[in-house]
Amino acid sequence: MNNPYLPVKTEIIDIVQETFSDELDVKTFKLRAADGTPMVFLPGQFVEFSVPGIGECPFGFASSPLEKGYYEITVKRTGKVTDMIHSLRIGDFVWIRGPFGNTFPLEGMEGSDLFFVAGGLGLAPLRPFILYALDGQNRSKYGKINMLLAARTSKDHIFAYEYGEWKATADTAVDLTIDNPEPGWNEKVGFPHNLVKEMKLDFSNMYAILCGPPVMIKAVQASLTELGLPIERLYTTLEMRMTCGVGKCGKCNIGKQYVCVDGPVFGMAELAKMPTEY
């Protein structure tokens, strides 16, 4: 019998420092199974990442599903396991199991405009979808792509080294914002829920995909609803404590749903019916 709890030995093949504010607390880890087996996953899914002796944590995929040679996860240093992960080096081996969870409705959103709104680390689980949609073979399947990427300061935008390439893709706009004005900052300042009102977007055929702190998601959802985007066209991805990843351990249970199996991607219409225990 296939054992879903058994992880696969995996090599860290690169590490990228993502943020440059005082804490330097976000890094991206490029990974590949030690035996070279490719990780086949879809945008929205996640892995369970083990450092034996320290513990195991779930992380959403942060890289393109079209890239077969490696995959990436982006980790913010916040606790025991992530402290340890941040101390790892290129060439170290870790243990990974997955992919787990559901995916964004990639096909269901074809033919529509996409609006990605991300706050801080919330961009990481959206990046696989963004890279998938921006890829040459998929770009024509979607309409205009807008992004509003928020961070606390100008040093906290993750994947900033890629924004130029994203902006250069046809019919794609990337707006950046930070919480407070900074010398030399020429992009937007302020919170996404206020900024979306000034962006003069066409909401007639759009899907919005939100990820960030819960308070940001709720505020942006309220603004977009006010601007006329139906709730059925709003999606997000949830973060929960998840031990098993396969719907058994009970931790990520919200009502009749298990976030690890039925999520982590949820339509806002579905989420509105669920208990708010997330």
Binding site: M1, P4, G247, V261
Partner: peptide, 15 residues
Amino acid sequence: AVLTDGKFQDPFFMR
């Protein structure tokens, strides 16, 4: 039911 129904089976319970 909880440990063996659905997409994933718990092999430790099953055995």
